[in-house]
Nucleic acid binder design. Structure first.
Lengths: 232, 232
DNA sequence: AGTGGTGATTGATAAATATCAATACAAACT
DNA sequence: AGTTTGTATTGATATTTATCAATCACCACT
């Protein structure tokens, strides 16, 4: 094993900072290191399958992943888009050991998979780590509350505006972005039909709020979008 | 202080079993006991106000509480109905110290309020307790995922069927129940307008699926309701 | 018994949204 | 270049659902 590989495979020298991992001792980082597998997923592949046994903490090293729940009649709802530095703890951990959602690669993705045993070990021996995991969880829950409000109280235009602001602010962190999400994905993220999404995108484009060229987006009028989002 | 009050005020001899509290040592239960206040809320009163600072772990000793998020234009969505033995940890704990939802009494309610400091103290010193809190959290998250699927993929009738099954199975734990939820509340729980809820209830009644007499309900055909829920 | 208030119910209508069908487009593959 | 395949787009239509307005029923208070 050469030096470069050593660096790559050592959690202590990982170039990404995962939320809460800074509370871990060298020894604890070693526990992660010992248990981890580096796995690469191709675009479209499934990282986590709803209903299957959950066996890993999934850390995203590079690429983008959609977290979605599979509903009825083949329909799907996207909860969140994950980016490098994010990780996924299946809520089944400590409970029924099942995944309650799926995660799929929307680009090629590099991951580190840490075993649940290693995670559990550190969770139990490091209370600061435990606290940050709980906090991480609460933040995800916050996202879910917002989604619930969006779905139940906002009309389509407001929800699509939210999706655009979300992608721009939280995911791609720029008002110009190229997305590998399909129109169907964007519809699943906004909880509207694909056709409705396309029409609303066209409206926004016609009113000069955004520029769209295929999957290349530019948010021109952020405040207008925010108003549309607020108005519901 | 007489004997009865001593019993009442001693967390160790509390007649309710709160999820995860069984992991606590006598000493830790004492920390809770020292910090707690017993507070009674009248029907309609607010236990937790969205946006306000979160200061307590709220344990429900008796009565029923609706957990709801306040959306836009005075609209509200009910996430969950809590009953004796349930407790509420605001997701703001360890994070922004704000409540991200509200909780209101739908009957007179007796609570024990445990300070966040005491909670934090035990969370950090008892890893089994921490694990069960995380698990508790995950279960709530599971509820949220289900709600998301319901809202985004199901039509009104399916959502109302879900509400009836939820109240029957999870809240009142009987196929005959009297609820103090108003029609508006039931609508907020199903995310439909009050009028639509009433019409669907009438449909269910006319088809013999349920009996309704004011706030007294009887589920006659559980399997039919389940089918309606599944069909979306 | 009369009055006022609140929540429940009903009916009519308008608005929001999905669905269906047809077409366009672009990449991948002979 | 022609064909296939999958996604994107557009238009027409049907469905779903909310909103508005009116009425009803029940309870508390005079």
């Amino acid at each position: 094993m050469n030096n470069a590989q050593l660096l790559i495979n050592n959690c202590a020298s990982c170039n990404l900072k995962f939320y809460g991992f800074d509370t871990m001792s060298t020894e604890q980082l070693n526990i992660f290191k010992e248990s981890h597998c580096r796995v690469e997923f191709k675009k479209g592949e499934t990282l986590i399958k709803q209903g299957a046994r959950c066996s890993n903490l999934v850390c995203i090293k590079s690429g983008y992943v959609k977290m979605h729940v599979e509903g009825l009649g083949g329909k799907s709802l996207i909860i969140k888009v994950l980016k490098p530095g994010d990780f996924i703890i299946s809520p089944g951990i400590f409970d029924d050991y099942r995944n309650h959602f799926s995660a799929s690669a929307i680009t090629d993705v590099n991951t580190c998979l840490i075993s649940i045993d290693a995670f559990s070990n550190v969770f139990h021996s490091n209370d600061q780590f435990a606290e940050s995991i709980l906090r991480h969880n609460h933040q995800l829950m916050q996202t879910l509350y917002n989604q619930l409000i969006n779905l139940s109280h906002k009309k389509m235009t407001g929800r699509v505006a939210d999706t655009l602001l979300y992608l721009s602010n939280e995911v791609y962190e720029s008002n110009i972005f190229y997305t590998t999400l399909s129109r169907q994905d964007m519809a699943d993220l906004s909880s509207v039909s694909k056709e409705s999404l396309i029409r609303i995108l066209k409206d926004f484009k016609d009113s000069g709020i955004i520029l769209v060229e295929g999957n290349q987006f530019k948010i021109q009028a952020t405040t207008t979008l925010q108003k549309i989002s607020q108005a519901g």
